[in-house]
């Protein structure tokens, strides 16, 4: 059963001068528990597609339906609330809150959701164990390596048990050891918690381990291939 559906999604920039079709009529469906990589050359529309699915950007045309909700019709405040409850984000540059420790960064989303402290503490410890950073829980992002920060970012994205996680080139700034480590963790969480992962990448190591590969070019889907 699909949890995300995009219908004839368009994102056109500079419509009045020379229109740039960042996303040009993409219709896709994502099922629960998928581990999908969106691939393609730079400028093909990977990040724009993720931003549209994540409700960070408004499409020029078309719609994004998540679990029955057309998020393109939600108001600004509603979309923030919707993201908080349904979507986890992992960014290329980690983007952890610099003044919070690893533990506090993971806990932050749950606090915004109003989850009781007792439940938060348990979830944080579980996630820190899952990403192998329990011993660094009291370190701030500046005291962690890039790989460690990205693992915290993954844990943060999963903290609130979202319907799916969007990861924009999560391994772009990591070395191969950290990349493999992160992929192991993401795959494990995908299997254990059933979390849906959709990420953009042009890293071949990621592509090799994805369960579904969607290839984009000039804002259009070139190939949609299920591997497992």
């Amino acid at each position: 059963m699909s949890i995300i559906t995009t219908n004839n999604l368009h994102k056109i920039y500079d419509e009045t001068i020379v229109p740039v079709y960042a996303v040009n009529g993409i219709s896709l469906e994502f099922d629960k528990g998928e581990f999908t990589a969106i691939i393609g050359p730079s400028g093909c529309g990977k990040t724009t597609l993720l931003n549209l699915i994540g409700g960070l950007d408004q499409p020029t045309k078309g719609e994004v339906i998540i679990d029955g909700t057309n998020i393109t019709q939600l108001k600004q405040t509603e979309i923030i609330d919707f993201r908080l409850k349904n979507i986890g984000f992992v960014f290329q540059a980690y983007n952890l809150i610099p003044v919070l420790t690893a533990k506090e960064n993971i806990e932050f989303i749950m606090q915004l959701q109003g989850i009781p402290k007792k439940d938060r503490d348990k979830r944080v410890i579980d996630l820190l164990e899952a990403v192998g950073l329990k011993d660094r829980m009291n370190n701030r992002p500046s005291e962690l390596s890039g790989g460690q920060q990205q693992r915290v970012a993954v844990a943060r994205a999963l903290a609130s048990k979202p319907k799916f996680v969007l990861a924009d080139e999560p391994t772009a700034n990591l070395d191969s050891k950290s990349t493999n480590n992160l992929l192991d963790i993401m795959l494990k969480l995908n299997e254990v918690e059933g979390t849906t992962f959709i990420f953009s990448t042009h890293d071949s190591r990621v592509m090799q381990r994805a369960h579904r590969l969607i290839s984009l070019e000039d804002g259009k889907v070139q190939q949609d291939q299920k591997i497992k």
Binding site: I80, R83, L84, K85, F89, F91, I97, F108, I109, L112
Partner: peptide, 11 residues
Amino acid sequence: EFAIMIAVGMK
């Protein structure tokens, strides 16, 4: 930083 906070769900 503000943008990230809003993106992850902070009002």
